[in-house]
Computed example of a mutant assay.
Amino acid sequence: MMPDFTLRPYTAADENAAIELWRRTWAQHYPHIDFDARVGWWRARWRGELVPACDIIVAENYGALAGFVTVDPKTQYLDQIVVAPEHWGSGLARALLDEAKRRSPSGLYLLVNKDNARAIAFYAKHGFTYDGEDKNPVSGIAVNRMRWRP
């Protein structure tokens, strides 16, 4: 059953909620990492790198931020797709991914942590294929590069 959510463009008023959603979601997936300590770094990256370059679409569920996707249509890079844990498996991630594809119709690529089997399976299910090894440009962790071509 699809939750009641709406997609809309990001506004500056969404910043705190988006950053908290990022922190909470990543902390749920990687509980051994202190994401509280990374919020300042993430806020600087959000403001300095993602907001200026990316189309950011947020999903709201009854007025609360439930997810977002960041995609740079110029480079075709999907940097983030974040869905609140309580909405995992709900169809919200697919809706955000479909919106990213709509905004970058000639293709998309992304980097995904090799240990994130759930995300790898999700992207494969939605038409992404393995496109080689890479390294996360921030953490240096080995990742899979995945690509979607229409």
Rank of each mutant, 00 (worst) to 15 (best):
K125I: 11
W26I: 12
R145L: 01
T25Y: 13
R118T: 13
S104Y: 05
E20A: 13
F68G: 13
R149H: 00
G140S: 09
A119Q: 01
R24L: 06
V138N: 06
N61W: 06
I120V: 02
V71R: 04
L21E: 06
Y109F: 08
R94C: 14
Y62W: 11
Y62N: 15
P31E: 03
F68P: 04
A44D: 05
I141L: 03
A93L: 02
V69L: 04
E133W: 05
L78K: 07
W42A: 02
P31A: 00
T129G: 04
K101C: 12
G107A: 10
P150L: 08
F122Q: 00
G127Y: 13
L7V: 11
V58D: 08
R149C: 06
R24H: 01
Y10M: 05
V143H: 07
N144A: 07
W22P: 03
V71A: 09
R23A: 04
D4R: 03
W42H: 04
G132H: 13
R145W: 10
Y130I: 09
A59Q: 12
G67L: 09
L7K: 10
G91L: 15
F5N: 03
G40F: 13
L78H: 12
A100Y: 02
I141H: 09
N16H: 15
K135S: 10
I141C: 12
T6E: 15
S139H: 07
V82M: 07
A59H: 06
Y130R: 11
V71K: 08
R45W: 14
P137V: 05
V51F: 12
A142H: 04
F122M: 06
E20P: 10
D72L: 11
P9F: 13
S104M: 03
T6V: 15
R8V: 00
L96T: 00
L96V: 10
E99W: 11
Y123W: 01
A124T: 13
R23P: 13
L108S: 11
P3M: 00
L111C: 02
R149K: 05
R102K: 08
W26R: 05
D134G: 15
P85M: 05
Y109H: 07
E60T: 10
K135I: 01
F128Q: 06
Y123F: 05
V39S: 05
P85T: 12
H32S: 08
R145D: 13
I19R: 06
W148N: 03
S90W: 11
K135G: 04
A117P: 12
D4T: 04
I19M: 11
R102P: 06
R8D: 08
R43I: 09
Y109N: 09
A64Q: 15
R147M: 14
V69E: 08
Y10E: 01
H126T: 00
V39C: 06
